[in-house]
């Protein structure tokens, strides 16, 4: 379970202070599929970065599985990222020099599994995303939808408890976006908690719970308001 209380994130540059998150409080239970929507610049990515231990928070408390993460050092944070969290990015972020197999292998290498265990996990994840037949392909030889599936396989390979996705369908056409979302639903039903940032309300609606971020604050939108917003979109 993921719990934030009064989390603030302030970016300071020489001239400006940006309050990207202001008093962010929420709790995500195990097994939930949460969508996060909100206008550009509202703080969605910042929230995911903090949830995924990619960035430190300025103030507040963040607990992951009951553990206060602010006390962890770099090595421990890296370990938590590696074991508990899987990331899916808008632009896939595959490593171009590595083939599909080796891309999925990356998080497993930092986990220290032996070669047999890694291969087993990689092949089973590729199976799950429907790419078991192309382990030797390079990212440039795949379609956008296939690349995002590889990225999902990579996120799943470590069998994380949480999957954090920032606009996972942002670079895909509607058809591909739908199929990626089907895959995420499937993964969620198998037990992985998912937090997904998206612009598209139709996709957000497929989550169990919708959160709305505005000006660095988080809101559990009343359903009517949400539907109204969907209608105008």
């Amino acid at each position: 379970m993921l719990k934030m209380k009064d989390v603030c994130k302030i970016y300071r540059t020489d001239t400006v202070e940006t309050h990207a998150l202001r008093g962010f409080s929420l709790a995500v239970e195990d097994g939930e599929f949460v969508s996060v929507t909100g206008p550009s610049g509202s703080g969605k990515t910042t929230f995911l970065n903090i949830a995924g231990l990619l960035e430190e928070l300025t103030s507040g408390v963040y607990e992951l599985d009951g553990r206060d993460i602010s006390a962890l050092n770099d090595k421990e944070r890296s370990r938590v990222r590696n074991e508990k969290i899987g990331f899916i990015f808008q632009s896939f972020n595959l490593i171009p020099e590595l083939n599909v197999f080796d891309n999925v292998d990356v998080p497993l290498r930092y986990r220290g599994f032996d070669a047999k265990e890694r291969e087993r996990r990689i092949m089973s994840c590729l199976e799950r995303v429907g790419l078991a037949s192309r382990p030797k392909h390079f990212p440039a030889q795949l379609s956008g939808g296939q690349q995002q599936r590889v990225a999902i396989a990579r996120a799943l390979a470590g069998e994380p408890r949480f999957l954090l996705a920032d606009e996972p369908t942002g670079n895909l056409d509607t058809h591909m976006a739908d199929s990626v979302l089907d895959l995420l639903k499937e993964i969620n039903e198998a037990g992985t908690t998912i937090i997904m940032v998206t612009h598209e309300l139709t996709l957000a609606d497929r989550a169990n719970r919708n959160l709305f971020v505005r000006d660095g604050e988080i809101h559990d939108e009343p359903p009517e308001l949400h539907l109204a917003a969907a209608a105008t979109a």
Binding site: G52, R81, F87, N93, V106, P107, Y110, R154
Partner: peptide, 12 residues
Amino acid sequence: SLRRALGASKAA
């Protein structure tokens, strides 16, 4: 930064 996100520590 991708490798860091996927769990590589600074030491790694």
